[in-house]
Design a protein around this nucleic acid. Structure first.
Lengths: 343, 343
DNA sequence: ATGAAAGCGCTAACAG
DNA sequence: CTGTTAGCGCTTTCAT
């Protein structure tokens, strides 16, 4: 029953040899010799489609790049970070540019199948985001064994020869000085962990400027959690900041909601600034001022690197890019009102 | 230089034949014969990883399923439908259940590479969403040629033997009667095209009940567009509805924003009901009442079908499922206030 | 259990 | 330009 049509069948049908079929098929646009015509006709008649697996094997390329993105924000939360939706979308577009598609694996924190994917996925290379620690070591190692190129995005590991990351220190510095220049002297940080680079740079700047610092930290990059944290904070009676710096847009959006639900206004009462320039940031009210990661540029650089090394059949020499983020000024930040100063 | 370690190298290193290596590797957990030990040691020493492409070819399976999702809402808009982010997330989880990963292709409306993906992607089968018209015909045809199983989600084409869809008629009917039972007599529909099934069922119910109907239609499933449409409508001075039915959650969210920005309250002044139960629907204020598509069930059914037919090497007999959507009551719908009745 | 050998379906020398 | 042939790296009969 359902026996596939192979190149042999086409050859027989057209009365030529296999190699002639292959030859004819590889140069479609040529002045059509008679035999070529017969081949094309046979292909049509039989409904022949070359087997992808066989071509991939002999050509040693699949046109598929493996992409590993976190399934959750962090930990075992069911949280869901819309940033990765943007990532997937952006990479999808960038892959098309290179006539590639992507094999996606969304990993969660305790994940037995990660290695499976790394070892068995039939791809030309891997790109991963926010894969850290042991699991990244595993990824680097298996990728090397397979002689496949890879690039780790947001990898801060010295062990990783191939990485692209955002210059968070510079960007946060930029953000903080933007707020400072606007006149803010009491800036709250809505972040994740103390050792997060963005949080650290916040602390550094604020401390150095001799200003009070206050951090609302929780383990997740989550809009809802940020909302709750901000709501509680506002209800606590602590003196209000004039601005809050959220270490990503999801949290900025949650923060804005909490402020508005408390009957205060953004930015009139409290300014809010985010980080990432998630797609939704354009559509909040007010539109969110934030630092834009140039995801397009990151994606293109990563994909170009993989494609460039795909055919060498070695891991590749590595790539080490540090992208700047740029400030996107929208409407969620204003100068603090005079009477708000309470320092 | 970077020559890959093949099974031959392992055989040589272990002093056995190729088939012994393969044999040993395929039954790892066995009482380890001496030669097997040597094989395992050689594998370790050489860092051998079996070539995925070669295995795929001979085994005739890739453990990868191709997923086609729209890149945009519709048309050539740059709009971005967060629903598909949920889809990708849900499918990712479902794929893991079956030890598969997914090759994603996000197609846009005018897209020269769609056929490329369909013809050349090395996958065990295809699943697509909202692929309609000629492009779906193309997909069905090429999939059949390749003897690969497929399932079309939200396919209403009679031509398609294999589809899973939501019973929109029943669900919208359910929604409408829910609103009717709450006492609403003036319900606005925020939708896309007139021939959209959800819009049609709205019209049917409303007309049959002898109620006025009003549709705000535009081509895109888009939060921003819905926001604008609702804003204009509210400013137009037309009599206010007591409820609005949006044909998807994005539009419901945009509608809510417009209502709130106009100084009205949801649901006190106007109730809003959505469709899809997008992840964000839980976190709006008020939380959105909506109809939940059971995406998990859809994904599992589709994937199970593909896996079941993967090894038969024929297109498969087809699957024809019609899933119900269930009403998720949250807080965006209330009974209309007495004085709002203006019929 | 093991080795030799056939083949998965295709491409790419290599001669003619 | 065409046919013959040798692989790509693996799994799997089939004898031994």
């Amino acid at each position: 029953m359902g026996a596939r049509v192979t190149i042999k069948d086409v050859a027989k049908e057209a009365g030529v040899s296999v190699s002639t079929v292959s030859y004819a098929l590889s140069r479609k646009g040529e002045p059509v010799k008679d035999s070529h015509k017969r081949v094309l006709a046979a292909v049509e008649r039989l409904g022949y489609v070359p087997d992808a697996g066989a071509r991939n094997l002999v050509l040693r390329r699949t046109n598929c790049i493996g992409l590993l993105v976190p399934r959750n924000g962090t930990k075992d939360s069911t949280a869901y970070n819309p940033f990765y939706a943007d990532v997937i979308h952006t990479f999808s577009v960038a892959m098309s540019r290179r006539s590639c598609w992507m094999g996606i694996y969304m990993f969660s924190m305790e994940d037995g199948q990660l290695e499976d994917f790394l070892l068995n996925a039939n791809v030309d290379g891997f790109i991963w985001l926010n894969l850290h620690g042991e699991r990244q070591s595993l990824a680097i190692q298996s990728t090397n064994r397979r002689m496949l190129p890879h690039v780790g995005i947001y990898s801060y590991s010295a062990e990783d020869p191939s990485k692209i990351l955002i210059d968070d220190v510079q960007s946060v510095n930029h953000i903080m000085h933007y707020l400072l220049d606007m006149g803010h002297r009491n800036i709250l940080c809505m972040g994740t962990e103390t050792n997060n680079i963005r949080v650290q740079e916040y602390s550094r700047v604020v401390t150095q400027a001799g200003l009070p610092y206050k951090q609302l930290l929780h383990g997740q990059y989550d809009e809802v959690v940020a909302y709750e944290a901000m709501r509680e904070f506002l209800a606590s009676g602590e003196p209000l900041p004039t601005a809050v710096f959220a270490t990503n847009d999801s949290m900025a959006i949650g923060t804005m909601r909490a402020i508005k639900d408390a009957g205060l206004r953004v930015p009139d009462d409290i300014s809010v600034i985010g980080y990432d320039d998630v797609r939704a940031a354009r559509y909040t009210s007010p539109p969110l001022t934030t630092a834009k990661q140039n995801l397009d540029a990151i994606a293109n650089a990563a994909i170009d690197y993989i494609c460039q090394w795909r055919d060498k059949h070695e891991p590749g020499p590595g790539i080490d890019l540090r992208m700047p983020a740029s400030l996107i000024v929208r409407e969620s930040v204003a100068s603090p009102r005079q009477n708000d100063a309470f320092l």
